[in-house]
Design a protein around this nucleic acid. Structure first.
Lengths: 188, 188
DNA sequence: ACCTGAACACCGTTCAAGT
DNA sequence: ACCTGAACACCGTTCAAGT
């Protein structure tokens, strides 16, 4: 039985719009038309655009955590973990030249309601925390300061690679930049 | 004599708005109110929002070229050149947590008219070309392929650092990420 | 040459009203 | 519980009309 949960349908369509065009371009009316309801009905499920974006960002972060923790559980190999991690961002570009939700929202930071900003902060934290874990593999918990810094640098570098590659509309640009990071030693 | 050129006043105000809030959030009516004219008057100088954004991006790139070429002319020291380069992006964050015009526009890539996209591409090219020059200092034009790749990686990494730091609303985050790139060897 | 007011089809949001 | 139509103040854009 396919109970086409309207709320769920809205979230799916909205996520695609958000990753493609960003927060300000996300239109309740356009969204409603795509789902097959009126825009006031979208407001019933998500009172404001901030509520919708925050819900999307929250789920986005939650899904990533599940995926990343699964990776670590399946393999303790640092390099393959990082490769899967960059693959997550690569996949967005492959899918209609989309961006990471956190990346595109960060650019619109000044226009975001506080609840969306909070989810954005959480997303970055979650990424850094996992990267620290991966970078610490095999190390007897020594220089945690340096590992923390490297994790943040990796996260920033990948977001930047995605931003630049998206401008070129070419995944190969992303791959090339990532590979340069690797040979430079920013990525393990 | 201060001929308060309306066109010039519009461009100054628009650039601040654009670096703060992005393309979609840039409002002709809000802009007009700030300048002290009607929005239809803004349309007289810039027929469409795309025309305005393209003009701003063009000038932004031109100004950067002048600045960067001046740096290279003044000093042939690689490290001080790169330090001034990162300083350019740092300055945007310092000024009201703004972003590089190209960075914020790249995130809104899907919504940009072609003329704006063209200026964005040119901006990236200009940056990479200058970085290649700096990275080649003292080298007898050997592995240009590798230098080209490193230049693009540097540009992407800095844009990413700015994006992430902006999310934190803290220039210190930018500085720390850049420093990590340096110790890793992505930046000379 | 430069500016304006009015109109058009859009936007997020609210709310009384329907089922 | 879920959806809608109508209204509000916004938006970019066009254009005839003013100086």
């Amino acid at each position: 039985m396919t109970t086409t949960d309207t709320r769920e349908t809205i979230m799916r369509a909205a996520r695609a719009m958000l990753q493609n065009r960003g927060y300000n371009a996300l239109s309740f009316r356009e969204l409603a038309a795509e789902v097959g309801v009126k825009s006031s009905s979208v407001h019933y499920h998500f009172p404001t655009k901030g509520d919708l974006a925050a819900a999307l960002a929250r789920r986005y972060a939650d899904d990533l955590v599940v995926y990343l923790d699964g990776l670590l559980a399946a393999s303790q190999d640092q390099q393959s973990c990082i490769r899967s991690y960059t693959g997550f961002f690569r996949a967005a570009l492959l899918k209609d030249n989309r961006m990471c939700l956190a990346g595109i929202l960060a650019a619109e930071h000044a226009d975001l309601p506080v609840e969306v900003r909070a989810e954005l902060t959480r997303f970055a934290e979650v990424n850094v925390r996992w990267l620290v874990e991966v970078l610490s593999l095999g190390k007897s918990g020594a220089d945690t300061e340096a590992v923390q810094r490297q994790a943040l640098a990796i996260y920033a570098a990948i977001e930047g690679a995605q931003l630049v590659a998206r401008g070129h509309g070419d995944v190969a640009v992303f791959d090339q930049i990532i590979e340069t990071y690797r040979t430079a030693g920013v990525l393990p």
